[in-house]
Structure formats: C-alpha cells, structure tokens
Amino acid sequence: MSRSVWIKADDDVGDWETRKKRITAGIEAGVDWVLVDEGDVERVRELGDVNVAAFRTDADVVDEAEPDESEADAYFVGKDSEGDGTIDLPEDFSGSADLSTLRRRDDRAQGAYVRIFDENYEAFAGEAAAEAEYTIAVGEDWTIIPLENLISRVGDETHLIAGVTSAAEAQTAFETLEIGSDGVLLDSDDPDEIRQTCEVRDAAEREQLELTYAEVTEVERAGMADRVCIDTGTLMEHDEGMLVGSMSRGLFFVHAETAESPYVASRPFRVNAGAVHAYVRTPDGGTKYLAELKSGDEVQVVDTDGHTREAIVGRVKIEKRPMFRVEVEVEGEDGTDRVETLLQNAETIKVPTSEGRTAVTDLETGDEVLLYYEDVARHFGEEVEESIIEK
C-alpha cells in the first residue's frame, strides 16, 4: 500500500502568511498533498512541486476550460456543509447518503471531507466514501473506533485519509487494524511535527527483510572485471549497505564505505557493489543489473537487522579492478543451495559476518556472511514461477 501525507492549509488555519509557512514546511518535508481553499491553488503552485487538493468555493460556477495553474489536482466537498456540521444532518438520517449530498451542483469533486462528531457522521462518511475517490475523515471526540469502522467498511472503495494533529497520531492511523489508513491529513504548524509525520509515512511503507547467515565455501582470486561503485544522494549509517549478487535468489549484504582507514577516507554515500553483471535490490522488491544503474534511479538500502529504506543514485562509477569470487552455501526449500558473487579485492569492501564486520580480503572458508535468500526465479528483475539454472 502506498501511504500519503496531506497538509491542511485552508483558511481555517489562518491568514495567507500563516498558511504559506505551513505549506512551505510541508513541501520541504516531502508531503504528498496540500489541501487549501480553491483560491489558493495557484499560490501553492508557485511555492513548489506538490499535488494540490482544494475545497470548492462556488458550486454554481464550474470552469470547464483546459486545466491551468489555477486548477487543483483534486476537488473536495464537505466544508461549510453537512460534512463539517455547518449544515445539520437530517433528523431522520439513517445512514443513507452519497457524495451528491455534498456535491450539490458541483460535479468536479473527487473527494469528501467529513468531521466525525458521532455515529451518524461516521455513517455519513461511509456512504460518501463509497462514491468518493478520496475520503478525509477527521475524528473529533473519538478517533480510533470510527477509523477502524471505516477501514473495515470502505477501505477498498476509497483512498481513506485520517485527520491527525501529530506524528504519533499519524503512526496510529497507519497501524490501525494492522491495515491502516491510506493517508493522513496533518493539521499542524510545527515543522518538526510535519517532518516526523513524513518519516512515519516512509517507515510504514518500508519493507522488512529476513536476512540469514550462509557459510563461505570458497574465496578465490578471479582476475580483472568492470567494478561498479554506487554513489547515492544519501549518507548511510555504519550498519547499512546494499544487497548485491551474481544470482538473484541470493544477494550478499555489502556494507557502505562508512569506516575510516589509515589510507582511505570514509565515503558513507558509497557502496562498492561488485561487477557489472551483478544484481542490486530495488525498493519495489525487484532487482537491477549494476550496469543498468544511472543517476536518478532508486536502490534499496538495508541495515543488518533487515530494515530498509530507499536511496537515489547520484553517480555510478565503473572501473577495472581485481576481483574475488565468494561462494556460500545456504539452506533452501529443496536442500543446500550454492550462491556466489564477485567483489573487489580491496580492504575497504566489507561484509557483515557472524563474528562482526569483515573485509573481503580477510574472508576465509567457514566464515558466515549475511545474505538475503529467496528461493525464486526472476525475469527482468521480476519474480517468476519457472525453473532457472544459475551457475
């Protein structure tokens, strides 16, 4: 599931300067959407590249011209109407409503905005959600139970966005019922809270990998090859690196060059990944050949506990270097499996072993190195159900 962070910046927030500061903080933090009143759409476009959602301000006027800078990416209804309690729900309301109740004469709306005051408003949100592409549900006196109910009732029918005021509330929204909302609408001026909410979103989307140790059965000099260094736009931590290997089913953990040495300065943005033919794992769970990587591509960064995040490739360096061939054995579904890779013959290339961080030049038969193993075949980086022999 792709999660999203929306920042609330309509006129309920304050004057334009107040809204502008909130929007700017959101764009800098990496929010996905900004929600404003329709008159502010063009102003937001001038501040940065971000999706803009807008509350419609005049239901009687529908601009059917070609989209321009003043057109929003999505329109919402529900403000100053039944959605926020400005207009009362009918006394005999029994859970029968749809988006047209909020739309009135404006057919531009793709989204519904509903504040959940009680069970009737929860039911109202559910009915509107059945027709809306996006549904924003803002809990008032109670928050978790309505969100649970909406996730279970309409979670597959709409992009459900929960109203929150903090990163902690955002985390709860993303974890509710172990499914979570698709997005959160953050109502906060605090730049730190906005940034932390985006970090919560990123963490909720990240893959957790199960890594295993495999016994080294052979380490041998393999002559010269075209070696690839992946330089990212991200500084990596001491326990982080990438998953690379000659065989897609078994990828070796190779540390980033975070360690200082007497001869070479640390380069915590770099992973010396191996020869051009090898695979590297990507954030979507696929693989790419090292030779294919270029500036702007995304690669997966992983730590020794299997936590992952994405990084943008800033530069790829390919140079001829002497190599080692490292072979290991790992237990697969059909017994012992052999996987291998080529790594540069240099003290700065390090891999995690059961005894700690070890230079490739110090690896010996019997050592246990960290590996990501999956007993599947791949075609063009995608998992396939077929028999492929790699050797």
Results as ranks from 00 to 15, higher is better:
residue 4 S to L: 05
residue 7 I to S: 02
residue 9 A to D: 05
residue 9 A to I: 06
residue 11 D to C: 03
residue 11 D to T: 12
residue 12 D to S: 13
residue 20 K to D: 05
residue 24 T to N: 07
residue 26 G to Q: 06
residue 30 G to R: 04
residue 31 V to S: 08
residue 33 W to M: 02
residue 36 V to L: 02
residue 37 D to I: 01
residue 38 E to A: 13
residue 40 D to L: 04
residue 45 R to M: 00
residue 46 E to C: 01
residue 47 L to T: 03
residue 51 N to V: 05
residue 57 T to Y: 13
residue 59 A to E: 15
residue 60 D to I: 10
residue 82 E to N: 13
residue 84 D to P: 04
residue 87 I to S: 05
residue 89 L to W: 11
residue 90 P to F: 07
residue 90 P to W: 09
residue 96 S to R: 03
residue 98 D to L: 00
residue 102 L to A: 05
residue 104 R to A: 14
residue 108 R to V: 10
residue 108 R to W: 12
residue 108 R to D: 12
residue 109 A to S: 12
residue 111 G to N: 10
residue 111 G to Q: 08
residue 115 R to G: 01
residue 116 I to R: 01
residue 116 I to W: 00
residue 116 I to E: 01
residue 120 N to R: 13
residue 122 E to L: 07
residue 124 F to D: 06
residue 124 F to W: 07
residue 124 F to Y: 15
residue 126 G to F: 08
residue 127 E to K: 10
residue 131 E to T: 03
residue 135 T to C: 13
residue 136 I to R: 01
residue 138 V to D: 03
residue 146 P to I: 03
residue 150 L to C: 01
residue 156 D to S: 08
residue 158 T to C: 12
residue 160 L to A: 07
residue 166 S to D: 12
residue 168 A to W: 12
residue 173 A to Y: 05
residue 180 G to A: 03
residue 183 G to W: 04
residue 186 L to Y: 10
residue 188 S to G: 13
residue 191 P to I: 10
residue 192 D to K: 13
residue 193 E to L: 09
residue 195 R to M: 06
residue 195 R to V: 04
residue 196 Q to S: 15
residue 197 T to M: 04
residue 198 C to L: 02
residue 198 C to M: 04
residue 202 D to P: 00
residue 203 A to I: 06
residue 203 A to R: 09
residue 204 A to D: 00
residue 207 E to R: 09
residue 215 E to D: 09
residue 215 E to A: 10
residue 216 V to P: 03
residue 218 E to T: 11
residue 220 E to D: 15
residue 221 R to E: 14
residue 222 A to S: 14
residue 226 D to S: 08
residue 226 D to M: 06
residue 227 R to L: 00
residue 231 D to S: 06
residue 235 L to G: 12
residue 235 L to H: 09
residue 238 H to V: 11
residue 244 V to Q: 04
residue 246 S to N: 11
residue 249 R to K: 14
residue 250 G to D: 06
residue 251 L to W: 15
residue 254 V to L: 11
residue 256 A to V: 09
residue 273 A to R: 03
residue 275 A to C: 05
residue 277 H to K: 09
residue 281 R to D: 11
residue 285 G to P: 09
residue 288 K to S: 12
residue 290 L to T: 07
residue 294 K to T: 13
residue 294 K to V: 09
residue 300 Q to R: 14
residue 303 D to W: 10
residue 303 D to E: 14
residue 304 T to S: 08
residue 307 H to K: 15
residue 310 E to V: 01
residue 311 A to C: 08
residue 314 G to H: 11
residue 317 K to H: 12
residue 321 R to G: 00
residue 322 P to Q: 08
residue 325 R to W: 03
residue 326 V to L: 08
residue 334 D to L: 09
residue 336 T to P: 04
residue 342 L to G: 05
residue 347 E to N: 12
residue 349 I to F: 05
residue 355 E to N: 09
residue 356 G to A: 03
residue 358 T to D: 00
residue 359 A to P: 10
residue 359 A to M: 08
residue 360 V to D: 02
residue 362 D to E: 14
residue 366 G to H: 07
residue 368 E to Q: 09
residue 370 L to Q: 07
residue 375 D to I: 11
residue 375 D to S: 11
residue 380 F to V: 14
residue 381 G to L: 01
residue 382 E to F: 10
residue 384 V to D: 10
residue 385 E to N: 14
residue 385 E to M: 09
residue 386 E to I: 09
residue 388 I to C: 05
residue 390 E to F: 13
residue 390 E to Q: 13
residue 391 K to E: 15
